[in-house]
């Protein structure tokens, strides 16, 4: 009987802990991608990623594709209309969990992390892993992440005459400042 009580108590603590894990959402952030070939290097930046993480290691970000800003208008038009088909797939999204360190718990200070989850770009979902850094102070969490994706994995076709200008491997840099999620009311 005592044994069952202990199990019940532990289960209650686990579920209460899970239910009350603190969620942090971004107040500022950017996501930047870089394409680099022997002939051309270019980047685009997006200042509107919505990023969230929970204190027990769940991570999510959602990015409006049309918010990527390029230096050249023509590049932006091609990116939105021809490659990303943003009117069909207006958002890219990642949902995952911190797998390293094991049993991640958000704590003050800097932690190197590995995240595993599902990335959806251009209507295609794919499992990815990424490394990053999470730095927590009393009132905020700063998140950095870097990872590569292959355009071919997401059925983003580069026309043959642009193969020298656009790399199939795109490096993505994410940076976000998060604060405890607050209610609007």
């Amino acid at each position: 009987m005592k044994k069952y009580s202990i199990i019940l108590l532990m289960a209650s603590i686990f579920f209460i802990g899970a239910a009350f894990s603190q969620v942090y959402t971004s107040s500022e952030g950017s996501i930047r991608f870089v394409s680099k070939t022997d002939f051309e290097e270019f980047e685009a930046v997006n200042h509107q990623p919505s990023v969230a993480m929970s204190s027990n290691g769940k991570v999510q970000f959602r990015v409006p594709v049309n918010s990527f800003e390029f230096e050249k208008k023509l590049m932006q038009t091609h990116f939105q209309e021809n490659y990303m088909e943003s009117s069909k797939f207006p958002n890219a999204e990642f949902k995952g969990t911190i797998i390293e360190p094991d049993n991640f718990k958000l704590k003050d200070g800097k932690q190197e992390v590995k995240v595993k989850g599902i990335m959806e770009i251009h209507g295609v979902v794919k499992e990815i892993e990424a490394t990053g850094t999470i730095k927590k102070t009393k009132n905020e969490v700063i998140m950095f992440g870097n990872f590569d994706i292959l355009l071919s994995d997401y059925k983003i076709n580069i026309p043959k005459n642009n193969i020298n200008q656009i790399s199939n491997t795109i490096t993505i840099h994410l940076e976000a400042k998060l604060e405890p999620k607050k209610s609007k009311n």
């Binding site: 969620v23 959402t25 200042h47 509107q48 919505s50 969230a52 993480m53 929970s54 769940k58 991570v59 999510q60 970000f61 959602r62 409006p64 594709v65 049309n66 918010s67 800003e69 943003s86 207006p90 958002n91 999204e93 949902k95």
Partner: peptide
Amino acid sequence: NGISIPRDPDDLLSEIIVTFS
């Protein structure tokens, strides 16, 4: 730039987000 509507009740991003630039 679009609207994102959460489809999964487990989403941490549980709000409808409307973005403009």
